[in-house]
């Protein structure tokens, strides 16, 4: 775990120095999931998947629209706009389906704190925040089998 964080730290440092933004997917430490496919991730944030396989309800943690992680979520992961995304989520609720639980939090730290209390929460945070005390206790999930520091990581 420590080695992973060290690698992440180095990668983050390198990415920042190179001017490249990188994002990590974090979950509650009690969450048994270790790796997600990109498609699964898109399904969770797109409101398609609303429950973890082990049971708990998926709670989406997002930042304000102007934050880098939200822009990355919209632009790179879901390939949509904020308004389209809101509309899509609203349509799910209007259809009578189980509504998507989504919490918009003010900062990366708050997001991490939040996730600590909610076992089914998942968030996309900047890899630079992983070293903060609030985020360090969360679990970083492999995307397509790769951690953020590894080559071929897709959330950059």
């Amino acid at each position: 775990m420590g080695r992973i964080l060290l690698t992440l730290g180095l990668l983050i440092g390198f990415s920042r120095a190179a001017g490249v933004a990188s994002f990590a997917v974090v979950v509650h430490p009690s969450n048994p999931i270790t790796s997600l496919r990109l498609r699964d991730l898109q399904a969770m944030f797109g409101g398609v998947t609303k429950q973890w396989e082990h049971g708990p309800k998926v709670v989406l943690i997002e930042r304000q629209p102007e934050s880098p992680s939200f822009r990355f979520l919209m632009g790179r992961l879901l390939n949509t706009s904020a308004s389209e995304y809101k509309r899509n989520l609203a349509s799910i609720e209007f259809k009578g389906e189980t509504p998507v639980t989504l919490k918009v939090l003010n900062s990366e730290a708050t997001a991490c704190k939040y996730m600590f209390y909610v076992p089914g929460a998942i968030a996309l945070v900047e890899t630079g925040s992983l070293s903060t005390p609030e985020c360090s206790q969360l679990k970083v999930v492999r995307i397509e089998g790769k951690l953020p520091a590894e080559d071929g990581y897709r959330l950059r």
């Binding site: 709670v59 919490k103 939040y114 209390y117 909610v118 089914g120």
Partner: peptide, 11 residues
């Protein structure tokens, strides 16, 4: 309490 908090945070 954690469960209650989780419910609370979930809204």
């Amino acid at each position: 309490r954690d469960e209650i908090v989780a419910r609370l945070l979930e809204g």
